[in-house]
Design a protein around this nucleic acid. Structure first.
Lengths: 354, 354
DNA sequence: CTGTTAGCGCGTTCAA
DNA sequence: TTGAACGCGCTAACAG
């Protein structure tokens, strides 16, 4: 059997309480005693039973997830994953609350952060908008000892504790590389549909995409970015207009949301020959892949991001280190052939990872 | 706070022991009493604290992972993940042993399974070889009440409890689709390098690949399969010869292991124009992607597979249901641009998923 | 500074 | 058929 605190106490000739003090780095132990206990711990190869410890502590971690409201399907999926985590979380002594704010709205985000601080939560995860007032609010949270992670879209490294999301520059490069390979020698410019240049993830994807296109000898012209505000209707209008103006268009890179509009525009013009690469595996992009209108979808696994955020927030709240390597979120590539079957509508109860 | 057994006992006017009997479906409770307790459970929305239950039970699950020995880097990675799980497992009341057998060897696999049965393990996970004697051994294990999952390569559905691996037909189709898109209109045949047609995963990948190539109008000729036995040296020789015989070769699909040999052969001939698609993100395929010699790598996450296997085996051992949806392993596509940074040599301690 | 004691939520004897 | 009491490994009062 694994050694327990009793074994350590016996071996070191001290009481359970003293062992506990040493284990948890609490004061009130003479250096010599501490050394004796630590040696016993070392020699016995003791590892604390976290489940038992949590049981005894009865500790709970109140966390808040701040997520943009609205129809953006990826955000709705993210929220669903957060709710799932909330369900599961009661079993893990974690209590998760979900707060909505308007998309791209810095003011509401600041208000939500301050409210969470007032509530005395242990950690906050938020889809961040890149604005000075937001950074200031995060500063207040962290000053109050609250852990803060950015979700999906990052901020300056110094502002937050950790970022749960993909390397968006690399994602843009991936999209560019796939676009170049899929198009081959076929001529014609490519268009880029973004949501807003106010969020960092969109800026970074654009940067990566353009870098690869430029590397490819500059033979491929990239048209001016279309800003659709992640709104399907605006996206539809912008793409429709673009297709009309550029009948020779070879490809479209959609780096934000509003893909339902993009697909509607393509269907309207019947241009199934355009190479389309989009982000996030959601209802519209999945349908696009299946129908052949979309050639590839780059995805970040919302479930992984939420679970990673929970782990990181708990670790930070306890002052424990995070192994950044292991929390890295990958850039998934989906084409029609490796599309995973859709989950049932209930979202089914996923117990762990995926 | 969440309701506990005490709350139920109080509400139902019975003792803790009776509540426990009802909760665990043990006999010795009158129907009326049982009904009262069940109603209390229902009304309070009680959910058992699994951690506390396990603590009290002190139950452990002895599991065995049977993995082919040899230099196949994917298998070594799988083993590393199993070792990682073994480390972590002591914290989860699971004890994992790892057993080696020669690759493609049905006899040794049978011996290993029978040894595990004799040891009285709770569950077995194995990279299966498709042979009648193996199916018989698995039958003995399951007759002894031992859960059995296949890992990476499957057997007939009726033989095992569950399969932890990817849909290999879909993987082959994915490879075919990427190959077709990357090659575009470029002429020339494609070669297929496999390990052995004795394992099901290789057969299935080939099937999917050929199906897609045939769908594409049959314009692309697929050469006879090269069987390299997952051995780098044989693979090198076979591919070298193939390149010599077919100077117009457009692509190579490597659906097994031995990729170090494949890459060596390509380097030797300096044919960097051949489109190469391989399986499993290992040291050689990663290097190939980075150098540009390999165009895409399809991967199955060994870590996910091992963790999924552990979850499934524990569930089956307890007679609990498994939500198949949530244990599905995805087909990852990697190109140079979305390659995740390598983990450090220690394999670092991954605490959960990834 | 150190030790004793009483739980955390649950399972399991052993009596009644 | 039911219940009281103890223990799993750990933490946290409260004494000393």
């Amino acid at each position: 059997m694994r050694p327990t605190v009793h074994d350590i106490a016996a071996k070191a000739g001290v009481s359970l309480a003293t062992v506990d003090r040493v284990l948890n780095g609490r004061p009130g132990v003479r250096a010599v005693t501490r050394a004796r206990v630590e040696e016993a711990i070392e020699r016995l190869g003791y590892v604390r039973d976290v489940a038992a410890a949590n049981l005894a502590k009865g500790r709970v971690y109140p966390l808040v997830f701040i997520i943009p409201e609205g129809e953006n399907p990826f955000m709705r999926g993210l929220e669903a994953e957060a709710r799932l985590a909330a369900t599961r979380s009661s079993l893990e002594r974690t209590r998760i609350a979900i707060v909505h704010i308007p998309p791209f709205g810095a003011g509401a985000l600041v208000t939500a952060i301050d409210a969470a601080i007032a509530d005395g939560v242990a950690g906050i995860a938020a889809v961040a908008v890149d604005a000075p007032a937001v950074a200031a609010a995060i500063g207040r949270a962290r000053a109050a000892g609250i852990a803060f992670v950015t979700l999906v879209s990052d901020l300056a490294v110094s502002v937050r504790d950790h970022f749960c999301g993909v390397d968006n520059v690399a994602a843009g490069r991936t999209a560019g590389s796939l676009m170049a390979r899929f198009l081959g020698a076929r001529p014609g410019p490519v268009a880029v549909l973004a949501g807003s240049m106010l969020v960092r993830d969109h800026r970074e994807r654009l940067e990566g995409f353009c870098a690869v296109m430029a590397d490819a000898g500059g033979a491929r012209r990239v048209l001016d970015v279309l800003e659709g505000q992640d709104d399907p209707e605006r996206a539809r209008a912008l793409v429709g207009e673009c297709l009309a103006v550029h009948p020779e268009l070879a490809g479209i890179y959609s780096l934000g949301a509003g893909n339902a509009g993009l697909i509607a525009a393509l269907e309207a013009t019947g241009r199934s020959d355009v190479c389309v690469i989009a982000h996030e595996l959601t209802e519209p992009t999945r349908a696009g892949l299946e129908s052949g209108l979309v050639d590839a979808v780059l995805n970040q696994d919302a479930g992984h991001e939420v679970r990673s955020a929970v782990r990181v927030l708990r670790a930070k709240a306890d002052g424990l280190p995070v192994i950044a390597e292991q929390e890295r979120i990958r850039i998934d590539i989906f084409i029609k052939e490796n599309l995973p079957p859709p989950l049932d509508d209930t979202g089914s109860a996923r117990t762990a990872e995926a």
